[in-house]
Nucleic acid binder design. Structure first.
Lengths: 341, 341
DNA sequence: TTGAAAGCGCTAACAG
DNA sequence: CTGTTAGCGCTTTCAA
């Protein structure tokens, strides 16, 4: 037999559909007596509300989309791990999509509600998309942007202060006595600004310490992964004047760089010190453990979800804000060396 | 102004809603002339179909749910990375949920369509749920189960032959001359069977080689992560008769174990050889790289999605099958030692 | 507090 | 090939 509907329940309980709806949705006060009748009927018919119908009537899907460049990048999967329960607590399901950092795919997702109204709002972590391209988005789509770009006033932006954090990372290396410090992960030709902000912090730290930057130590990479980190590090070690320390733009890059150093028979941090970015779990268990900048992922997730739901509730455009999340510098073995543990 | 509806388009184009529906959904043949008229109207009104309404009329959501224990476990995020594009190619969005391996949460998800009809089917990777508990599931929910359990005839199961793969892993260690081989990751009290099957393979390999198993070398762990692997390995190294090799039930466990060995100043594989399971990216870039059992994730993802969609299309119960995916043994440095690379 | 009834926007059976 | 029309199952305005 087909699933029971709200109407069936009403018939059996001898009340109107309206009343059943009230009981199920908690939309209004119901006498305990009628409530009991209705609940008995629901039980008897094994009634389960049809979300599709409810959504249509409400004009809401009860879902939010979260779009990241790569799902299997630990930083993003750890962030998702925090976002999902937060959204569910508030009664929203999470749709996930990955773009592979493809600007076209990214633009498509925010432009025209590519998937129709399957989601009520979006948390979006762009990679390839420039600020300008972001502007093409559907103005009716409640949007939270993650990462290091600034809000254009129409969406909220949540992220840590990347320039300051990068500067702090490089300061850490300088404080340890390093003067030839490489930066791995620059992306001068990418429209995305994440990498460029880290490079900025790198320069600021040098300036503040009165150290001249050797621009040839700023190494671009196509992505932020282990392979790129390893390749860049290998190239640096080929040089006559290799750096004594490296600021890697992600922990994955750092792990790759460490791998390249060790593979050459050199030591970390004695020969080359390495600091990363993101504080992913891998970096806490690798050998050596990776010093890093640790964004507060839990608060980023909470802030992003809460702000998005507020926008959805409002059902109207709201002015966008830039929210700076907190972060901490976590020194570990890859810069400090093997300590007592 | 509110969004244009299909009716608005029909009015403007001077045709019936039926015709517009045909054009948009490609449900029937339409004269090029009328099609052009309709498309012009769509353009003029910036019409976008409302998926909520379409879903209600169709009785389908166009979404599938994928449920995994942990999103930030590389094995699962790598699998999801493969599942999402496959589903999207076929016109389905993917809803993701994580259970933290909590049996109650897992049971809830498959039992009563906890989320209503937000998804048309589910790919489910259970951890805490026993075969018996799996039986409580909603019989109307098209279901694909991932992992090492067997189908009860009502759902498809997709996964590699865990016993055989484990046996092969241990054989690899035996072939290298090891006789005292530990197993890290047993979960004798867990209702899930994944761990137990690996232990079974471990025993079979010993039997086949005529080696007696020292049961005290089979170490249970609460989860399959780095911390557990490190703790178990540390305990093994405390013993008077430590093993010369370890079969870790996941690459994360292996990475943790390696970390514990190196931290004690010992070497991998010279003092302790380690083989893992899952072939996650981390294991390809760690020092040393991790020998492992590599399930064919792409084919697991493809098989799971295709079978699920077939079940959804059928709109009726289908007999369940066990599908064995392929896997390969990948020897790396953690068992072979540093080779020329 | 509860009933009656009108949609939400789309699909599809049934003509024509 | 296209128009008419009746739902899909729920929410909600308006009355009672």
């Amino acid at each position: 037999m087909p699933d029971a509907t709200l109407r069936d329940v009403a018939l059996l309980a001898g009340v109107s559909p309206r009343t059943v709806s009230n009981v199920v949705g908690g939309y209004a006060q119901v006498t305990p007596a009628t409530r009991a009748k209705v609940e008995k009927a629901i039980e008897a018919l094994d009634y389960r509300p049809n979300l599709l119908a409810r959504n249509l009537a409400n004009g809401r899907s009860g879902q939010i989309a979260v779009v990241v460049p790569y799902l299997d990048t630990p930083y993003f999967s750890e962030l998702l791990q925090a976002i999902i329960p937060r959204a569910r607590e508030r009664g929203f399901n999470v749709l996930i999509d990955q773009t592979d950092g493809d600007p076209e795919h990214e633009a498509e997702l925010i432009k025209r509600r590519a998937r129709g109204f399957a989601y009520d709002g979006m948390i979006f972590s762009p990679l390839g998309l420039s600020q300008a391209e972001l502007a093409v988005r559907d103005p009716d789509l409640p949007l939270i942007v993650l990462g290091e770009r600034e809000s254009d006033g129409h969406f909220d932006h949540v992220g840590i202060d990347d320039v300051a954090a990068s500067q702090e990372a490089v300061n850490h290396l300088i404080a340890l006595g390093h003067r030839r410090i490489a930066a791995i992960g620059d992306q001068p030709y990418r429209t995305g600004e994440a990498a460029q902000r880290r490079t900025r912090g790198y320069h600021l730290a040098h300036e503040a310490a009165g150290i001249a930057v050797d621009e040839s130590l700023v190494i671009p990479t196509p992505r932020f992964n282990r392979a790129d980190g390893a390749a860049a590090m290998a190239a640096l070690l080929e040089r006559d004047d290799p750096p004594t320390a490296v600021f890697a733009y992600s922990d994955l890059v750092a792990l790759g760089a460490v791998r390249a150093v060790l593979q050459r028979g050199l030591r970390v941090p004695e020969d080359v010190a390495v600091i990363g970015y993101d504080d992913i779990e891998d970096g806490r268990y690798s050998t050596p453990t990776i010093s890093t900048i640790a964004p507060d992922k839990a608060s980023i997730a909470a802030e992003a979800v809460d702000r998005l739901l507020a926008r959805i509730e409002a059902r109207a455009p709201m002015p966008g804000e830039d929210v700076h999340s907190t972060y901490t510098l976590v020194p570990r073995e890859s810069t400090l060396g093997r300590t007592a543990d």
